[in-house]
Design a protein around this nucleic acid. Sequence first.
DNA 1: GAATTTCTGATTTACGTACCTCAGAACTCG
DNA 2: CGAGTTCTGAGGTACGTAAATCAGAAATTC
Lengths: 341, 341
Amino acid sequence: MKPTVHDIAAHAGVSLATVDRVLNGRAGVRPATREKVEAAIEALGFVRDVAAANLAKGRVYSFVFILPANDNSFMQALRAEVQAAAERGRRERMSLVMRDVPAFDIAALVAALDDAGRDRPDGVAFVAIDAPEVRAAADRLVEQGIAVVTLVSDLSGSRRVHFAGIDNIAAGRTAGTLLGRFLGGRPGPVLPLAGSLMVRDHRERLEGFGSVMAERFAARAILPVLEGRDDPVETGRLVQEALLAHPDLAGIYSAGAGNRGLIRALQAGGSGVRPVVIVHELTGATRDALAQDLIDGVLNQDAGHEVRSAIRVLKAETDRSAVVAAQERIRIDIFLKDNLP
Amino acid sequence: MKPTVHDIAAHAGVSLATVDRVLNGRAGVRPATREKVEAAIEALGFVRDVAAANLAKGRVYSFVFILPANDNSFMQALRAEVQAAAERGRRERMSLVMRDVPAFDIAALVAALDDAGRDRPDGVAFVAIDAPEVRAAADRLVEQGIAVVTLVSDLSGSRRVHFAGIDNIAAGRTAGTLLGRFLGGRPGPVLPLAGSLMVRDHRERLEGFGSVMAERFAARAILPVLEGRDDPVETGRLVQEALLAHPDLAGIYSAGAGNRGLIRALQAGGSGVRPVVIVHELTGATRDALAQDLIDGVLNQDAGHEVRSAIRVLKAETDRSAVVAAQERIRIDIFLKDNLP
DNA sequence: GAATTTCTGATTTACGTACCTCAGAACTCG
DNA sequence: CGAGTTCTGAGGTACGTAAATCAGAAATTC
């Protein structure tokens, strides 16, 4: 059977207490004795039973998730996933607390981070706003020995251990390639849409999109970016105007939210051949639009995967154990009509 | 703090033994008493600590993985992932045994399944061959109360609890859409390649591919399927011949393995515009080819995800607990040059 | 109403590790 | 060589749950 600490003690000819000292790096063991114990561990292939260890330690993992109080589909999904993970976590000695902060509010986020640190949790995950004050607040947590993970949106130059989110530049590039290639020789300009250029995700996506268009589809005209504030109504209005102003509009890349408005405008779009459309985030609306051939592709980040990944990383960090790197790389999911889940 | 069985006993005014009987569905509790205990569980929000429970039970999860002794990149990756999972599993009271069987050998697979059952493990995962004998062997395991999961390749009509693999028809359809749209108006026929049409995965992919081409790109000529036996040399030869025979060849869809040969043939392909190429499985070779613009897209199934998913499902099944359905859906990863990991 | 059966409570041990105390052995230093 | 320090062994308790035993209470049967 699987060897236990008792077996190690017997094999090394020392007592349980000494084995324990070696295993947990405590002082009071002569080098020669330490080596004997380590040899026994090696020989028997002992591995510590983490469940028993955590039980003995009385350890309860405590993590805080700080999420913006946005009401778009993606943030709703994210909150639901945190909720579900909290539920499951209870049976595994994990306490997950979710805190809402006003969206795009730097001061509120900083306050929430400092506040979270006061309870001395094992880890904190949060959707970052890329600002120096936030970076400083995150680093204060790290200073206290609290593991910090950014979620969905990263915080450059900070001491967070991990970013559970997609590479938005790569996502923009992917969207550019898909759109450019789907267009083929079809003439006409392309319209980029964003929620706001103040948001780092959207900016990065458009940056990637722009560079691919310049590199590989240089002949294609790119219209100025329109900002729909992630609002369906506003986005719909902007798209409707663009369709009127550019009857030959060949493609649309929507890097932000508010896609319900875009889809409505496309439906109302009328008689001609509709533009090729690539959007972000698989929601009820974008899923239906894809199934009905109203749009051509959806790039998606899996909220569930991001939340579970953040938790795994925080847990590994508190245990000082390793993660499976490949598992924690958040993929850019590409959905066409044919591979909808 | 988190309530324990002791708290339940105190709150319900019964003994620990009675709480235990209720919790574990044992007999010997009057309905009225049972309700009192259940009310206390509800009131205190008690959830069982699985780690402590498994420790007390002395439970060790024992799973057997049966994999074909194929030496292509994908199977090698799969074996490596099982190996890595076995290593990690040791610290979590899990024993993972990996068994090799000759590839495409129904009798050997049946023997391996029966053999695995003899040790009475908690679960078995295997790469299925879709044959009645295999189905019967799998059902025999289920009959013994062993959880059965198919990996990569499914077993229709069997009593396996889960299939950890991708939907190959959807993958083929996705490949078809990508290829058809990337081709745009470019004239010329398309060549489908497979390892063997006897293999269910490849057959399904080509089926999906064919139906999309017929539905959405009906004008495009499809050449007869070539079978390269998943062998780089043979595949290379076939592609080279096809390139000579069809100088206007516009596209290639490779549903099987042996893509190193395909890539070599493309490199040697010479002067003209190369065909649009979509292949399966992200390996060193296909990754490089994508980065160097020798091919246009790679559809991939993540071996690591499949193995971890199979383990999670087997574990949940032995615990009779629930899985996170979304987490166990294996995605069809689409890689372009722009979103390579 | 006695005998039997079924239920219930109290108590104990076990799982594998962590961590504590205490006593005694083995060293080190002056 | 004695005093001090550093190591080591022995033994225990604890974590939260499972599961066993045994005795007593309640219900059922004759």
